[in-house]
């Protein structure tokens, strides 16, 4: 009982602190912008711990964060091998192949108007489809190894990336293109000096959207068949054993790698497109 009360006291204290920080004079400083969400997150974790203990929720339904952290610390070796299998082998290789293929296709599509008129509506349509559904077929074709996961990821990232890159390559004004023409620049020169730089913000937008899709594809594909390691395999088998601490640890790994993946691309974007208004803030 005391733990439940304490949970709500913690919530009120965290919220009051955040309210002070957010409405105080230093609300726009970097420190406050970082502190407020961190305090909020810590409050939620603390409430989770206290409520699970206070209400005596069985650990097979929801384990407290401390238990998850314990399981995580005990199994770092196992989780690392899962990470290598699913993220490094499955997701990243598929992501690189898929985005690369989409980029090359986008150059072709952009070059020939007929292809653009024909393929772009199809690409838009495919980007909205539940492509995860192809996972069972691809697992059947490419076997249980990481190759089938990479194949699912290739299909999932291809169309969003294609649509974004083509939109980016179209994003130059007639004036700019005319200027390149008065310089008598070739298609390649116009591409390298004008259209690719102009397309970079769109390309990075596509890369960021598809980074999450890549992880989803790799994990879901493992539900349809995998060797005895991998995050998706860990999640589905640990649920069978009601080892919820392990399930949550695998989810933590997936979440951390997703955030790191996204953060890495955002970092590269900031370095490469430093000139864009959205980066100059």
């Amino acid at each position: 009982m005391i733990q439940i009360v304490f949970a709500f006291v913690l919530w009120a204290a965290g919220w009051a602190l955040n309210a002070r920080l957010a409405n105080g004079p230093g609300a726009d400083t970097r420190a406050a912008r970082l502190a407020v969400p961190l305090i909020f997150g810590a409050t939620l974790l603390g409430m989770w711990e206290l409520l699970v203990r206070g209400l005596e929720v069985p650990t097979v339904i929801l384990p407290p964060p401390s238990q998850i952290a314990g399981t995580f610390a005990e199994n770092t070796g196992l989780l690392w091998r899962d990470f290598v299998q699913t993220i490094l082998k499955g997701a990243v290789s598929g992501y690189v192949i898929g985005c690369g293929a989409a980029f090359l296709t986008a150059l072709l599509v952009d070059r020939y108007d007929y292809l653009r008129l024909g393929l772009l509506p199809l690409g838009n349509f495919m980007a909205a489809l539940p492509i995860v559904g192809t996972a069972p077929i691809l697992v059947m074709w490419f076997g249980f190894g990481w190759q089938s996961k990479a194949a699912v990821v290739v299909l999932m990232v291809f169309f969003p990336m294609l649509v974004n890159t083509v939109a980016g390559l179209q994003d130059t004004t007639t004036m700019q293109r005319d200027l390149m023409r008065t310089y008598a620049s070739s298609w390649g020169q116009t591409l390298m000096k004008l259209r690719l730089p102009a397309a970079l913000p769109f390309i990075f937008n596509g890369l960021k959207i598809t980074s999450t899709l890549a992880l989803i594809g790799a994990i879901v594909a493992e539900f349809f068949g995998s060797p005895t390691l991998g995050l998706g395999f860990r999640i589905s088998t640990s649920i069978g054993q009601l080892d919820l601490g392990m399930v949550w640890s695998a989810i933590v790994v997936a979440a951390l790698s997703g955030t790191a993946f996204y953060g890495l691309i955002a970092l590269i974007e900031r370095r490469v497109t430093f000139w864009h208004p959205s980066q100059r803030g």
């Binding site: 955040n18 309210a19 920080l21 957010a22 989803i216 999640i235 649920i239 997936a254 955030t259 996204y262």
Partner: peptide, 30 residues
């Protein structure tokens, strides 16, 4: 609410980068 904006919005953005579908089997079993 400025408090909600500052505390919830960053987490909403971070959660976009998490492969949420991984939670699906667990949500169903739980």
């Amino acid at each position: 609410s400025r408090v909600m904006d500052m505390s919830v919005m960053p987490w909403a953005i971070v959660s976009q980068t998490i492969p949420i579908v991984a939670l699906a089997p667990m949500i169903i079993v739980v």
